[in-house]
Design a protein around this nucleic acid. Structure first.
Lengths: 226, 226
DNA sequence: TCCCAGACTGAACAAGTGTTCAGTAGTTTG
DNA sequence: CAAACTACTGAACACTTGTTCAGTCTGGGA
């Protein structure tokens, strides 16, 4: 007699063919096991980092068995790849959504706001990813760099077409101003009295960055003196 | 019969009272076991991070036994504290060495050069530390912030005494420009054709930062047009 | 109806983790 | 000299890790 395999645990109905669209908005329990594992992993990786997150922790958070991770993703590394792909996809969508039409530099602030402000999970994960030494991290940064260059060209076109500083380094400086607070959030926040990524603070920071890029720290203040 | 305790392994002579000065320059084998463990830990923590470094790895790198880590530092966490203290001490010395006398903004470049350029180990370790969520990391950042504020005040004094942008956020911007490349080195470097932290590149970057802070990206170029 | 593919499980595996412990070798102190 | 102290060790501890495996359950096609 088998040692009472007991009740069959919760099991989502098999729906191989059913490619769930807009699964992002669905409650977790409606997701495929595969998707639930990936979502749980995204959250835990963002909170604790990849190394510090065990397969068991992911499985438990998803309400599933650790063995299922291997079944679906081959290995823990495979799970990471799946999460990476998902996140890069979301970021790509966010970047694509704010193309063109907006005001000068407004789009830059919009990128920050949409990508970093809204979703703390995405923020944490991005922080982790940007600090690794993997090929995908460098690729992600390259995409961000290209975006900064485009933004910079538009800004330069409106400002007189001439870059006074170091043209090669300018996009990196731009990215440092945007990504710095993201990366340094854990150490910056204790030195501030407001949440760094609430909308008001983010808008103010964005304006300050715009001002710095245009006129430096000592240029004309945003409110004209006359 | 004991299982042949074999030859006594290498053992540095006991010298409790001998507080070794300038141990930094001494070859590793002349160091106390305690110091050798700490140095090995600094290197490995900087290269792989704290979590990813095992006590055994540190001990092996130091040519000692893992149990000695506990003997000297109480625990792996104790070892980390010792390394932290050592690094903070070195940074503090570097910061103290370049007080006052220098040219405007030159000291800022000097800080970067001395702290970040010279010692890749210190760079790596600082990167790791700044991205943790510990009290000591926040404290370190607070010290850096204070330094930036001082530098900013001097700069403002020479520039007309008025900050055009956001006075509260300005020191953070300054730090983002300095620390950004440090934190993003792993993802930035693949997008560049020169080593980010060799002296020439570092000097150029420092000049670009100075230019940006003074006049923005589109202000007068460093070489006067006349 | 039977059968199969796939989702999913608990139990176990080998390997690695931080830490403990009894004990050895050398130096200092009495 | 003996005792105390310190640096240091190898072997083992209990625990966690990623992964494997045999097997159960379910839905759909034949």
């Amino acid at each position: 007699m088998p040692p009472s395999p007991a009740v069959a645990p919760f099991r989502a109905p098999t729906r191989r063919w059913h490619t769930v669209s807009c699964m992002r908005a669905m409650p977790a329990s409606d997701l495929t096991g595969r998707a639930r594992l990936r979502e749980a992993a995204l959250r835990l990786f963002a909170e604790r980092g990849f190394e510090a997150t065990s397969v068991r922790a992911v499985a438990t958070a998803a309400g599933l068995s650790p063995a299922l991770v291997v079944h679906h993703f081959g290995s823990k590394e495979g799970l990471r790849a799946a999460v990476d792909a998902e996140v890069l996809d979301r970021i790509g969508t966010a970047l694509r959504d704010i193309d063109g039409t907006e005001e000068l530099m407004v789009s830059l602030g919009a990128v920050s706001a949409r990508m970093f402000g809204a979703d703390p999970l995405l923020r944490g994960y991005l922080r982790r990813v940007l600090l690794e030494e993997s090929a995908s991290s460098a690729a992600l940064f390259a995409r961000l760099l290209a975006g900064a260059q485009i933004e910079l060209d538009r800004l330069a076109g409106a400002e007189g077409g001439r870059i006074g500083g170091d043209p090669q380094w300018a996009p990196f400086q731009m990215l440092c101003l945007i990504l710095g607070p993201l990366l340094l959030e854990p150490v910056m926040q204790p030195n501030l009295d407001q949440p760094m990524f609430n909308p008001q603070v983010l808008a103010r920071r964005s304006a300050a960055n715009q001002q710095l890029l245009r006129h430096g720290l000592f240029g004309p203040p945003p409110t004209a003196p006359g």
